[in-house]
Amino acid sequence: MARFHRLPVAAVDRLTDDSVALTLSVPDELREEYRHTPGQHLALRRLADGAEIRRTYSICSPAPDALGEGPSTLRVGVRLVEGGAFSTYALKEINVGDELEVMTPAGRFTLAPAPGLYAAVVGGSGITPVLSIVSTLLAREPRARFCLIRSDRTAASTMFLEEVADLKDRYPERLHLVTVLSREEQQAGLPSGRLDQDRLTALLPALLPVTDVAEWFLCGPYGLVQGAERVLRELGVGRTRIHEEIFHVDGAAPTVHPTAPAHATVTARLDGRGGSWPVRDGESVLETVLRNRPDAPYACKGGVCGTCRAFLVGGEVRMDRNFALEPEETEAGYVLACQSHPLTEAVEVDFDR
């Protein structure tokens, strides 16, 4: 069960003009709770003007060995979002020694290190979880190789530039790094421009045997991720080998909440305890549960992070948006509670599965 703990800030490192890396210290007694798989994220929360704000940030540091102790530190990257309540606070106010409320790790955009060829297409801050994936994989598995294709606006705006360069120096034969800048010409390498579908269709087969890649990781803005996914499918890659995590969703269709049936109820199991509650008009499943169980897990409430994933035990719901669950998860019966609205008088979900 996901839980929040207060963790002290051990370091604040400026990455670019609009991004920082926060290093958090993990006390010995909490190290097992913060054990994570490469690619997972943390939800951070704070109170501002009486309102609770939660945001998710991917862990960029390598994952601890499964046989050793949990991590003593965790590192996340935060990029400033225009008008962002948490990112503005992170860049302008957080200092070493401050304590942050941090949820235990979550997320399924992950890789268990194993031999083989892996690849990623990332844009902007999408490098953050992939940095953890690549560094953990190459350190643990000497028979693994990785092709990292990253897109940024300019070199100055590139997050974790030095960290990725260090990885390339450490594993020159096993890490193939390709950088594309959309607004700046490079002295060497690919010409500038966006990584759109046409460009990816030509680029990917020229870089590596696309269908031989064991797992593909796509992370970044919605347009880049969806475009890359379409290209890979057209090139013959099965959907089970494509993993996606979206950081920004622009221009999404407006949400239209269905009216819940009269006297609808939501039954939820959470942390071993269950309960049933009436649904107010327009409420999502998560909102109904939160009125009665404020410990219910959530972060973005936008259908992007997947923190509120629950198993639909009974009844029917409609999800407004889903940018977090794989097709196999929805087919197995999982839903995003923040985006799910009851279509039947009785809906039952299980957050513990």
Rank of each mutant, 00 (worst) to 15 (best):
H5F: 14
L7C: 10
L7P: 01
V9T: 03
A11M: 11
V12W: 01
L15Y: 00
L15G: 07
S19F: 03
L22M: 11
P27T: 03
P27L: 04
D28R: 13
E29D: 15
L30Q: 13
L30G: 06
E32W: 06
E32P: 04
Q40L: 04
H41V: 09
H41L: 12
L42V: 02
L42K: 05
R46L: 15
E52D: 15
I53K: 07
I59T: 09
A66C: 06
E69Q: 11
P71G: 06
P71N: 09
R79V: 15
R79I: 13
E82L: 06
G83A: 09
A85R: 10
A85L: 15
S87T: 15
T88H: 07
Y89I: 06
K92F: 03
K92H: 12
N95R: 14
T104E: 07
A106K: 08
T110G: 06
P113T: 08
P115L: 11
Y118T: 12
V121F: 04
G124A: 02
G124N: 10
I127W: 10
T128V: 04
P129T: 09
P129M: 10
L131H: 14
S132A: 14
I133W: 01
V134W: 01
T136L: 07
L137A: 11
A139W: 04
A139H: 12
R140D: 13
A144M: 06
C147G: 11
S151Q: 13
A156M: 05
T158C: 11
E162I: 00
E162P: 00
K168C: 13
D169S: 15
R170Y: 05
Y171R: 03
R174M: 06
H176P: 05
V180F: 02
E184N: 05
E185M: 10
Q186C: 12
A188T: 15
P191W: 03
P191M: 10
S192K: 13
S192W: 02
R194H: 14
D196V: 00
D196G: 06
D196C: 03
D198F: 02
L200N: 02
L200H: 00
A202P: 00
L204T: 11
V210D: 01
T211N: 05
T211H: 00
E215K: 11
E215I: 02
W216T: 00
Y222G: 14
G223T: 14
R233A: 09
E234F: 05
L235P: 04
G238H: 08
T240N: 12
H243P: 02
H248W: 02
D250I: 08
A252H: 07
A253I: 04
P258W: 03
P261R: 07
V266R: 04
R273G: 06
G274T: 14
R280E: 15
R280W: 02
D281W: 00
G282W: 00
G282R: 02
G282F: 00
E283M: 08
L286E: 10
E287I: 08
E287G: 14
V289L: 09
R291C: 14
R291Q: 13
P297Q: 07
Y298V: 11
T307E: 14
R309P: 01
R309I: 11
F311R: 15
E316N: 06
R318M: 11
F323Y: 15
L325M: 04
G333T: 02
G333K: 03
V335D: 01
C338H: 12
C338E: 13
E345Y: 00
E348V: 11
D350G: 10
D352P: 10
